[in-house]
């Protein structure tokens, strides 16, 4: 075998590997890992908060809350902001589920 033949043989592109569901398996694995990451980022702050709560000055917070509650309840701007936040989060979740279902 001469050098030219060997070079030609070596330069032959690798054959196409049929997808055969590989891309879907990767997408599924990505979605699963993202799910774990999302759960971790959701529940870790909740767990951290729960761990801190017993050490907070409850009486002082309750007193402050009693002053603030009427103000918050009567705030239209705050209600709109809360509604917008809830809608954005649920829309994003639905969109992500829909994209992975494709």
């Amino acid at each position: 075998m001469n050098d030219g033949d060997l070079d030609a043989l070596l330069s032959t592109p690798l054959g196409d590997v049929a997808d055969a569901g590989f891309s879907k398996r990767v997408a599924l694995a990505v979605a699963q890992r993202e799910g774990w990451r999302e759960r971790l980022t959701t529940y870790a702050p909740i767990a951290a908060t729960a761990a801190v709560v017993p050490f907070l000055p409850g009486a002082q917070i309750a007193e402050a809350a009693s002053h603030l509650t009427p103000l918050i309840a009567n705030s239209v701007a705050l209600s709109i902001a809360a509604a917008a936040l809830i809608l954005t989060i649920s829309f994003e979740q639905r969109l992500r589920e829909w994209q992975f279902a494709l």
Binding site: D19, F22, S23, V26, A27, V30
Partner: peptide
């Protein structure tokens, strides 16, 4: 996610 899906399909064979 969808962009990445397209990248996987494009490069999986290589």
């Amino acid at each position: 996610d969808t962009d990445f899906g397209a990248l996987v399909r494009a490069h999986q064979s290589k």
